[in-house]
């Protein structure tokens, strides 16, 4: 792996007085897939919002490609546009499928918009539905549109927040395959949040465990599941953790 895209140093996030995330140190390398696992409410999605600069940390530093961003929340637009997120429950705009996929490109006034939209839609197998309204799609199709609109942007970093939760096995397979291809062909750096440890094992290069907002352990995928350093990781990986 090459130099880190992200380096988080003593990052915390509080809502009112409640601390929901505490990461002493975390690095995400260029081109890797890092999976963050943990039970619901462990701070995984909060972590993604910080990585996408949608929220600022309460304290600490998020170093993105050598530049430090702290709690004042001011991140240049061109930096923010190098990262995007596919959310667990994708919300599509009240326009056609291709209008949704083109939206981020229009914001950037990107060239070759139609080509990029068509390519992204054909990649997720939805080119035939390009003119259909986003509101008429099934959950799986909407998630694939969300993935297509993120793919069309060709960002350096793709954050995936439970991208296959509540989907049928067919759509899970389709989306996982797209994630693999993107990572392999474009070397897109990905942080995948999932509570599905099997998915983390299938897709990730490294896996981190978040418990009650604390980053317990990050390790290569084999080591994380076979020989973790922390007993809580072992308990979680074996499905013995009650939460």
């Amino acid at each position: 792996m090459s130099q880190p895209v992200y380096r988080l140093k003593s990052v915390t996030k509080r809502y009112d007085l409640r601390e929901v995330l505490r990461i002493d140190h975390l690095e995400v390398s260029a081109g890797e897939i890092l999976a963050l696992v943990g039970p619901s409410g462990s701070g995984k999605s909060t972590c993604l919002r910080l990585l996408n600069f949608l929220e600022a940390p309460t304290s600490g530093i998020i170093c993105f490609e050598g530049c430090d961003y702290g709690s004042n929340g001011s991140v240049p637009l061109d930096v923010r546009r190098r990262v995007t997120t596919v959310f667990q429950r994708p919300l599509l705009l009240n326009r056609s499928v291709q209008g949704n996929v083109a939206y981020g490109l229009r914001l950037r006034r990107a060239p070759d918009q139609q080509e990029r939209v068509d390519e992204a839609l054909s990649r997720v197998g939805l080119l035939a539905l390009a003119r259909q309204k986003g509101a008429t799609l099934s959950g799986g199709e909407a998630q694939r549109v969300a993935l297509a609109r993120a793919m069309a942007l060709d960002t350096d970093v793709l954050l995936l927040d439970e991208p296959t939760a509540n989907l049928d096995p067919y759509n899970v397979g389709v989306i996982e395959e797209i994630i693999r291809e993107l990572n392999r062909e474009r070397a897109t750096t990905m942080v995948l949040v999932t509570h599905n440890i099997f998915q983390a094992r299938r897709l990730a290069d490294r896996v981190g465990l978040l418990l009650d907002g604390e980053l317990v352990e990050v390790a290569d995928v084999e080591r994380f599941f076979e020989d973790p350093a922390d007993p809580r990781t072992l308990a979680f990986a074996r499905g013995e953790m009650v939460y």
Binding site: N52, F87, L91, L93, L107
Partner: peptide, 21 residues
């Protein structure tokens, strides 16, 4: 839907573009 704003921003929208959307 309140989360829509966050998703629009995640696609790279400025505050004005988000408000317009």
């Amino acid at each position: 839907e309140p989360h829509l704003r966050q998703q629009i921003r995640a696609l790279g929208a400025t505050p004005m573009q988000t408000a317009w959307a």
